[in-house]
Design a protein around this nucleic acid. Structure first.
Lengths: 204, 204, 204, 204
DNA sequence: TATGAATGAGTCTTCATTCAT
DNA sequence: TATGAATGAAGACTCATTCAT
């Protein structure tokens, strides 16, 4: 009765492979399901549709990422810039929280961040960047308020959000081992924080 | 006869619009050619195939970019790191050369860098990054040789190439005016050079 | 055990809704059974197939209708046309018998008469019209025999059967209240009988 | 150059057959196009989609019908009921105009009126009935105004529109010869006009 | 210089139905 | 008494591509 027929799992596993190789748009349900020893109809028994199948792969990892991000963005909002002085490693918290989530299901995250074009998740990275952006705008305004004769360099700020997020995407797509990832990302984060403090404000 | 029938040009113009809007993969030759008042067959008269049509749009801009890049990468290779000291603005040369090429045909470049998924150009950005990477590796090794007890942080180096190139992609996709672009990219380049010097070497 | 599990009833109730909304052909067993909190397989446990499910809804109402019709058609066959004179209301009998049957299970009848395309009942209305037709042919021949120099207008006769039956279909599909239906149909029936007498025979 | 390859016509002809036999919804483009010696893709070269293929068959006949109807409904609107007296045959005009249009492309009209369920034309008959209804409502109100102590029987009026229009549908679906149709419909129309005058008003 | 016609392989999706458990 | 799993056939539709003219 409960001896598992793992068709659903097989479908998910084969879908992962296919999505990873071809990207969502070019992936074929026929090819996925036949790789799983099933017919396309089976996909529609287990999932709503092609997007649903992708969802089964990425929804949970995605939720985890959002959770970490939201937490981080509200924590850091407390920063007091009048006294703040960056010390190497003090922003590792985000990386420390995020990396485990990103590497818990490495393939899923790769698909989500890099192979989801054509799916309902295709704007995920952009959305996260937007979120980051909003947060950084608030932060930068606080910062500017504490420093006379300076104003925010808006373009630089946007670009920073972009680089910050894509640093993680780059990590995922180039480093497959979690420990290595953790080690490599630290100097990157340090650099980013340093630069943020240094370049985000310009003369009025 | 030299009376110009501009069908070819019209096709190219309409293709630009379509590629920009939908990206290469989702663009439809039917829709392009009918927008040009022609039939799909016409595309195959003027161009080899879908990729050929894209080529007619991006080949020249692409060649220009490569030319600038190759020139830049061989010039800068002469740098003597034992005496080098970064001064703000001294690396603006690349931006000064590249931006005009990038904005000479803004649409074509956008397509090339951001809308070419599914085409034979889909790896262009990656290729340029690789090129940049090779160059930076040589550079970094020279640099390291001049600084005792330090070695190259390879991951950081790769990531730098990535960020460097994507800084231009980001620029193109967010700033449509050349002068503004020129102005905004400068601090970004300065920052990158600064950081490169500072973060690319780590303790042995 | 006599503790009732009303799954069958729920299935029937949900099927009614679905058939009414979408018609038999477009109705989906998946949607019906999941609305009933069951799976498609359950449908096949309780009923032979999709047609069988429809049958469970309409068979009894249909039988009732046929019973009334057959009774009526044999009663009226006794009519003596040599002495017959139509008096308003004297043909209300059919309506009086039929309407209660039609409105006893209004939904079922709607489905049967108006939503059964694609099912084995799709010709029910046509069949009833045929039946009516046969009856009217006999009747008309008696009538003609009693009136010299006249013959039956066959097309008109067929059309009459058609109109007669469709008067009830129209009623069902436009009036949901039984009392109102009863009131509205009477003048229609009167008119039909009047016209029948007047238009069914033409000069030889 | 202009020797006709009649693929389009063949497609239309085969579609007619298929639609007539199975109705729009159950008709298969595969079966239609292969009957025409072509592939489904060909259908999409000549027509927008399944509805477009149907449109190529019925659009013109439908327009003709609407034209006649609109003309008729505005003509007859002039009627003066205070002096009007029905004379047999004086309403044959509609039939005389309509029948030729209906029989000009008998198959197309059959499909339109009786086989279009599931297509964008599926409500055509209902729409025409509505149109007729609106017209009759105005007419009946004029009529009632000229007759003291009488009011319009609304249900009867609606039903009349229904019967009137379906008289033509019935004709088309039962009589294939135009001359015969013309002959058979006349007494029907006479009857309808007679009854209209007689039954549409009831005691206040 | 282009068109018009057509293909063929592919896409996702829907559905009634079956059957072991 | 039902479920869960799965099938298989079919559905409409899209597309880049070809080629005779």
């Amino acid at each position: 009765m409960t001896y598992e027929n793992d068709s659903r799992e097989r479908l998910i596993e084969c879908a992962k492979k296919e999505f990873l190789e071809k990207g969502f748009a070019k992936a074929s349900l026929r090819s996925i399901s036949s790789a799983a020893g099933l017919t396309t109809g089976a996909v529609y028994f287990f999932f709503k549709d092609k997007n649903g199948l992708l969802g089964a792969i990425v929804d949970e990892p995605l939720a985890n990422i959002y959770a970490v991000l939201k937490q981080h963005y509200s924590d850091e909002a407390e920063e007091d810039f009048s006294v703040y002085k960056h010390v190497e490693g003090d922003h590792d918290e985000l990386a420390d929280l995020l990396i485990p989530k990103l590497y818990a299901d490495h393939d899923a995250i790769m698909i989500l961040l890099d192979k989801s074009a054509g799916s309902k998740y295709e704007n995920v990275v952009d959305d996260i960047i937007s979120m980051t952006d909003s947060y950084y705008i608030r932060l930068a305004e606080h910062y500017a308020a504490a420093v006379p004769d300076k104003r925010v360099n808006e373009y630089m700020l946007h670009w920073f959000s972009h680089v910050q997020i894509n640093a993680f995407v780059h990590l995922i797509t180039h480093i497959s081992d979690e420990q290595t990832a953790l080690r490599e990302i630290k100097p990157v984060m340090d650099m980013l924080v340093d630069c943020w403090m240094k370049y985000i404000l310009i003369d009025k």
